[in-house]
């Protein structure tokens, strides 16, 4: 549709779209700004947009008073850990289903997806009790296990949709060229699959980072990731807007950046390949 658009139409679109975009983004921007205010400026009415006393005090205090770094590290370990373990289990499975499909492959895939639809509350009680009895409550290991299991179907599915796009003939060509299964995977499949694996990794880290059911209910002081740490601000500390904002900014910034890189894969991953 390479056709000329009138500048006026384009200008109108631009203005409306930017207005809508900024409105939607505003709460994040506001949080970011508030994180640099003093508590007094943070609650000032009328609100202060840019003309306040900029300070890093909140960031320092959040780090000092709470074990912010511990929670951050918990989030990293839990999201990256569960994703890596999930990938290790899912890559061979997705590979096999994409390249050696059997009669029941489709059923297995659908069944895996159905496990994702089991609501977490359905198993809250036994998991909680099991964790309590085995001492997994409030441990990073415990959360990694749970998140690996709830992520696994999505990981398998995402990888499957990516692998599916690698033409089977190329693998056959490799086989004809004398590649063993090992070199086929190493030299042909892996290089072609890496973009798909990377996007799966990225999306899944995002999802796990933001997971807020199990992380809230199965952790306390030790293993709490940022989701649970921020939840603790719902108590009176929440009234310290500037500190809440500083903690929030730190909690969402890394994932916001990762997320912006993975918009395309997000669509595909979350729709199980139905929308590309």
């Amino acid at each position: 549709m390479a056709r000329r658009v009138t500048t006026r139409a384009k200008l109108t679109n631009t203005i409306i779209a930017w207005f809508v975009g900024l409105t939607i983004f505003f709460p994040i921007l506001w949080t970011f700004l508030t994180s640099f205010k003093t508590e007094g400026d943070a609650v000032a009415i009328p609100p202060k947009f840019l003309d306040f006393h900029w300070t890093l005090e909140n960031y320092i205090q959040v780090n000092d008073r709470s074990d912010y770094l511990l929670h951050f590290w918990n989030s990293v370990v839990i999201s990256v850990g569960s994703t890596l373990i999930g990938l290790a289990i899912a890559i061979p499975a997705a590979w096999a289903m994409a390249f050696v499909p059997g009669k029941r492959t489709k059923d297995v895939l659908m069944w895996m997806l159905s496990t994702k639809m089991m609501p977490a509350v359905g198993v809250l009680v036994p998991i909680y009790l099991m964790f309590k009895n085995t001492g997994l409550l409030d441990t990073r290991i415990g959360l990694v296990i749970i998140l690996t299991l709830i992520d696994l179907p999505i990981i398998v599915w995402m990888l499957f949709t990516y692998f599916k796009e690698i033409p089977g003939e190329i693998l056959e060509a490799a086989r004809m060229d004398g590649a063993t299964l090992r070199s086929e995977i190493l030299y042909v499949l892996t290089p072609m699959a890496i973009p798909g694996i990377a996007s799966t990794f990225l999306l899944n880290v995002i999802l796990a980072w933001n997971e807020a059911f199990w992380t809230l209910l199965l952790t306390a002081a030790n293993a709490a990731p940022l989701t649970a740490f921020i939840a603790s601000f719902s108590a009176p500390e929440g009234l310290f807007y500037a500190k809440l904002s500083a903690a929030s900014t730190m909690a969402i910034a890394p994932i916001l950046i990762l997320g912006w890189f993975s918009q395309k894969q997000l669509v595909r991953g979350l729709t199980f390949g139905a929308v590309k």
Partner: peptide, 11 residues
């Protein structure tokens, strides 16, 4: 526009 999706629910 996409940003809010990446914000954790508690935040």
């Amino acid at each position: 526009v996409i940003a809010p999706f990446f914000v954790m629910p508690t935040v």
